[in-house]
Design a protein around this nucleic acid. Structure first.
Lengths: 210, 210
DNA sequence: CGTCAGTTTGAGCGAGCTCAACGTGAGTGG
DNA sequence: CCACTCACGTTGAGCTCGCTCAAACTGACG
């Protein structure tokens, strides 16, 4: 892993609104989020965007460019953030020498595929309430994975971003957050959220959590 | 590529309803579809399934098991089918020796990720009519890729399967196929379909085709 | 302290779902 | 070869969840 370290470039910090790359950009590197958060999105012909993913510390962003050497999404910082840039061709070369690295990278891509398929199920069969709940539980465990609180965290994205990601409107997202708060299972004030009853939230999603 | 050939196992043919693997099965191999077609699906706790993908000749199935060495989906043959089985650990070993193979496999996984993200956009922002249309155009170009007709082909899956995949009910799928037929852009009889006006279909989906 | 993006709340509407009934064709057994 | 069956498909009628449109509120930042 020390060898991986040699090819990683620690880039300058990014600030809210900075693009990491844009749709159709030439693909050169993947990025590991060190701090802060990003969203990826696509623009349709009428100029409106759809959010395709959120990326938190410890997660990998940019895999959408591997297939055809050009990014399918744009990626933008949601707040102050820093990243590690990993040039893809160097990663490939090094993977030929380090079986563990190759194996890990296959796993990372496999995990992305599995995650996307779960989102597919979520979008094709869950109600609005289940989508929001599942989304919040997902954020919770992703924050927990990097040692942050699983019950109290900040939403780095807007209600609109959440809506685009989950296939809902801003209004629906807002209304449901209020409704869940009235149920007492969570408390939300602006971007700050506290999950007060994880078990109840899991029950809303159904036995099969995301 | 001749070396890849040495690790591929050409399995016995499968018939409609045969499982290639089941959810939670230990992951051992990925499969290339040689003929016929498959669907992958997950069962939720209440026993109902959601289709997560369709696999046609020339496509790779089983990538959902790479991440945690266990399949996230079940895969079942929709008709008589044959496959090539590629043991994954052998593929990994060989990839260490053949840079081209490693590169190609990264590309294949990257393509799967890009495809899944397009489905995400489809499910989160398209109307029922756009979903069906986009789905049919997708099938069309996938059949064309292996030398079959892009305008006339058989639907190997049921209306129910299509509905589960697209997040619609059987009734909606059926109604929309009838409606599209009345518009004159396609003709459908049972499983046989003819796309009569590809341009019109693309227009329904919008400028950004899937 | 004004501005503007983001958020909330309300009222009405409609796309797609639910429930129900009927049609159809491929496979099976007599 | 026909009758039966059962999964699959179609069509209709009514309802509901989430969308649309509209208006007001909040807070961050210049």
């Amino acid at each position: 892993m020390a060898q991986l370290d040699t090819i990683v470039e620690r880039n300058r910090p990014l600030t809210k609104g900075d693009h990491l790359y844009r749709q159709h950009d030439n693909f050169k590197s993947i990025f590991a989020v060190r701090s802060g958060s990003f969203k990826s999105y696509v623009l349709n012909s009428s100029g409106e965007g759809r959010v395709t993913g959120f990326y938190l510390p410890g997660e990998i962003i940019g895999l959408d460019g591997i297939a055809d050497h050009s990014h399918a999404n744009s990626a933008i910082a949601l707040e102050h953030a820093s990243i590690c840039e990993i040039p893809f061709n160097q990663l490939e070369s090094l993977s030929l020498q380090l079986p563990v690295l190759q194996h890990n990278f296959f796993s990372i891509m496999g995990a992305e595929i599995t995650k996307d398929q779960k989102v597919h199920t979520l979008l094709s069969s869950y109600s609005a309430e289940q989508r929001i709940t599942s989304f919040l539980l997902g954020l919770s465990s992703r924050y927990a994975r990097v040692g942050l609180s699983a019950t109290r965290f900040n939403l780095p994205m807007t209600r609109g971003d959440i809506g685009e990601y989950l296939g809902l409107t801003v209004e629906t997202v807002s209304r449901l957050l209020t409704a869940l708060q009235k149920k007492g299972v969570l408390a939300v004030a602006n971007r700050e959220i506290e999950l007060k009853d994880i078990e109840a939230l899991k029950q809303i999603v159904g036995a099969d959590a995301l």
